[in-house]
């Protein structure tokens, strides 16, 4: 793979006494959607958190745009151009939709305003509920707000953790459509258990099992590989 945007090499992460990630490795190319797949507890969320610096890697290297970011604090990593949509969406419940968006804006220049307009066209509900507290939004609206907030800055990479979790199928479809539009503008690493969503959006995949990368390849190949899907993803 040439022109790598993000590269994880031999990443090991411990949370307290537990060894969660074991020599995790993967690469992300610009313009692609890379999907991390795996069962519950496989280490997908910890991988994203390690990239963001929210969990510290015990050893190994995270390289972003050719720079080692392994030991940088989360705010510094974000400033390098990585947006993060956590599994719990990370909405500030007591702040309005507008305030949630504003707190996420690192700059308030024309480019940011342009992205804001684009993202509000993509998620018109956010504009409609601009003054509503984040805590009063529906699950789908919270997810949209979280994704929109990560996009509003000039990020080269978005890390999105289980955007379909807990959402009704019709809302999942909307989220898929929005990420499809976003992937035209930015690179995405997506953690997803919903294989339908993963296969719709993904260009490449990595499968994690017990904190290890056990398989990777093109998503088109995985769609056809029933054995692999059954073995690691529990899909019959």
């Amino acid at each position: 793979m040439t022109n790598t945007l993000l590269k994880l090499e031999q990443i090991n992460t411990h949370i307290e006494q537990f060894h969660i990630l074991h020599n995790v490795e993967f690469e992300v190319s610009p313009g692609e959607v890379t999907v991390l797949l795996g069962r519950n507890g496989a280490g997908k969320t910890t991988t994203l958190r390690t990239i963001m610096g929210l969990n510290n890697a015990s050893n190994g290297t995270v390289t972003f745009k050719g720079e080692d970011i392994t030991k940088l604090p989360p705010y510094h990593i974000a400033k390098k151009g990585i947006g993060y949509v956590p599994e719990d969406q990370g909405i500030f419940y007591g702040l309005t939709v507008g305030e949630n968006m504003r707190v996420g804006m690192r700059k308030e220049d024309d480019a940011t305003k342009e992205r804001m307009e684009w993202v509000l066209e993509l998620f018109p509900d956010l504009k409609k509920f601009w003054k509503k507290p984040g805590g009063q939004l529906s699950g789908g609206q919270k997810q949209m707000l979280s994704i929109a907030r990560s996009y509003v800055n000039e990020n080269d990479l978005l890390l999105i953790d289980e955007p379909s979790k807990g959402l009704a199928p019709v809302i999942v479809e909307k989220v898929i459509e929005s990420i499809e539009k976003m992937k035209e503008k930015t690179t995405v690493v997506l953690v997803e258990q919903n294989f339908y969503m993963a296969s719709r959006l993904g260009d490449r995949f990595y499968i994690l099992d017990d904190g290890m990368t056990v398989h990777h390849g093109d998503m088109s190949a995985l769609r056809e590989d029933e054995e692999l899907k059954r073995k690691y993803l529990g899909i019959a």
Binding site: L54, P73, Y75, A78, G90, F92, L95, E99, N100, V103
Partner: peptide, 24 residues
């Protein structure tokens, strides 16, 4: 103010504030 917004957000979720690029 923006700093006030950050403080209020920080009271709710410090980790997310950092992940948005703010030195908490």
């Amino acid at each position: 103010t923006k700093i006030g917004l950050i403080v209020r957000a920080g009271v709710m979720n410090k980790e997310m504030v950092q992940a948005l690029g703010i030195n908490i």
